[in-house]
């Protein structure tokens, strides 16, 4: 079991003919992902790694029944690609590109807030994507790190998700689904919303949050975590991040006293989360929770 993505999910790749799009399509197929279509305007009729390419998302959906989309388009094209994809009826979108203007992200967020009758789930921007261990992956996570199991991981950072996954796999502990929620100031799905999926997933029995300085996602999720039945642990990176400096991610910036490691750890700790002082501390916690 898993959340959001499994080996049957019919995946479409936006920007499949680009340099990164084609290479990552190869790796996603190699991992077992059911990629049914690619889209690049003007390249309809071509194929990449045996995947048929269409001129538009709606044509691809009609022809292949695609139900999830992963974006490898330049940041300035994402807003357009987003509306094209939701209009074509796709409800799971993974936005890998970084450096999107925040105002564009707010326009997408605003649209999602006012949606009724659909359950659109968007990861990113600036996400490594989502991987269901042993089944499928959308995005750029290196497949070799994963091992099927029952721990869910949500991370704001790509490389740190790899580190946490790698530490668990190295000790023989598997994962259900690993999700990158994105590292921008505005995320299109809240941390609490992703936690809810894990809480409801019979294939996940504990969750690790990998957070970092900046924003209030971790703090805002605390109320939901109090109601969760599954154990949750969290590691928050950035004890040495100075105030007012962007730590590589647009969203990883402490403004005044907001977004510090201290604030996040205190709020999560009060909600019953096990705070990991350093990533490797995930191992004793995983053993204690029965893994």
């Amino acid at each position: 079991m898993s959340i959001l993505l499994n080996q049957k999910t019919r995946v479409l790749v936006q920007g499949i003919t680009g340099k990164i799009g084609s290479v990552q399509t190869h790796w996603m197929l190699d991992y077992g992902t059911n990629i049914v279509a690619g889209v690049t305007p003007g390249k309809g009729g071509a194929n990449v790694e045996g995947v048929p390419v269409f001129d538009s998302v709606s044509e691809a959906v009609v022809a292949t029944g695609a139900e999830a989309a992963v974006f490898f388009v330049p940041a300035s094209f994402v807003l357009d690609a987003f509306f094209e994809t939701v209009d074509a009826g796709i409800d799971l979108i993974v936005i890998v590109p970084e450096h999107l203007p925040v105002h564009d992200v707010m326009i997408m967020h605003d649209y999602l807030l006012r949606q009724t009758g659909r359950d659109i789930f968007v990861l990113g921007p600036t996400t490594p994507g989502i991987t269901t261990a042993g089944e499928a992956k959308m995005g750029i996570m290196p497949g070799s790190l994963f091992k099927p199991g029952k721990i869910g991981i949500i991370s704001r950072s790509g490389t740190l998700a790899y580190e946490m996954t790698g530490i668990l796999t190295d000790s023989g502990i598997g994962q259900s689904t690993v999700v990158g929620m994105g590292a921008d100031p505005v995320a299109l799905t809240s941390l609490a919303n992703i936690l809810k999926r894990y809480e409801e997933d019979p294939g996940t029995d504990a969750v690790v949050i990998v957070g970092e300085v900046g924003g209030v996602q971790e703090e805002q999720a605390a109320d939901y975590i109090k109601r969760m039945t599954k154990p949750v642990a969290a590691y928050i990176a950035g004890r040495f991040a100075p105030e007012g400096k962007k730590m590589g991610h647009a969203g990883a910036i402490i403004r005044g006293t907001q977004g510090t490691v201290k604030s996040k750890c205190e709020t999560l700790g009060a909600a019953g989360v096990t705070i990991l002082d350093t990533p490797i501390d995930v191992l004793p916690w995983a053993k204690k929770t029965g893994h």
Partner: peptide, 20 residues
């Protein structure tokens, strides 16, 4: 470091005994 999160975590770990 080759990523932002990894870089911040690496500083945290180095910082236990030394100063980044």
């Amino acid at each position: 470091a080759s990523g932002a999160g990894l870089g911040m975590a690496t500083m945290d770990i180095i910082g236990k005994k030394l100063r980044p």
